[in-house]
């Protein structure tokens, strides 16, 4: 009698195991992946490497779907192996993306700083050309206009320096390119005027 009761207990236990036991949720990996994605976001990866960040987001979503899909399954059938592997990949991807974004941001920063230096040199060249430019009829009026335009460029370059200091390299890039284009056109205008005078 006692033995048959024990046997029944084993059976009930087995049934309980069958219905409740399951694979362990990869919570640690999930937390690590989420933290990694947030860290990538913090260095503006979504701005500087938008396509890569989108792919990372997709992978994280995919892992979440995999987890919930497993959770929907019959306990004994659950396996978080794939989800876990994907979460580890996401964590690695996010860490790489974070580093890449920092590098990219630095590249843009250097590019903008170089463009700023280049445009400042162009401004200096234009100032030298202004000194050489013909001052005859109409020339002086045109020179005055160029000087005021150059003052506008210099004001933009001051704005660019502030934007670089504030870390807004994308906006700085647009402004410095515009300033460079304008300065180049002023330079060309002056060079043409000087060349004309030499030909005369």
């Amino acid at each position: 009698m006692k033995k048959s009761f024990l046997s029944m207990l084993v059976v009930v236990g087995a049934v309980m195991m069958l219905t409740t036991s399951c694979a362990k949720l990869p919570q640690e990996e999930l937390d690590a992946a989420n933290a990694s994605v947030e860290a990538a976001k913090a260095v503006e990866a979504q701005r500087y490497l938008a396509a890569d960040f989108n792919a990372l987001q997709d992978s994280l979503n995919k892992a979440m779907t995999m987890i919930e899909t497993q959770k929907s399954k019959f306990s004994m059938m659950r396996s978080y192996k794939d989800a876990k592997a994907l979460l580890v990949t996401v964590t690695t991807m996010a860490a790489t993306l974070k580093d890449d974004a920092i590098v990219k941001k630095e590249e843009v920063k250097i590019e903008v700083q170089n463009a700023l230096v280049e445009t400042n040199s162009l401004v200096a060249e234009v100032k030298l050309l202004i000194a050489k430019a013909p001052r005859g009829k109409e020339g002086k009026a045109a020179l005055e206009a160029i000087q005021t335009d150059l003052a506008g460029v210099e004001a933009t370059l001051t704005e660019v320096a502030t934007l670089i200091d504030n870390g807004d390299y994308m906006t700085a890039q647009e402004k410095v390119s515009a300033a460079k284009e304008k300065t180049n056109s002023l330079k060309a205008e002056l060079e043409e005027a000087i060349a004309k005078t030499k030909r005369k």
Partner: peptide, 8 residues
Amino acid sequence: MLFLEARK
């Protein structure tokens, strides 16, 4: 200048 920035 705004025009040039917009074009960029």
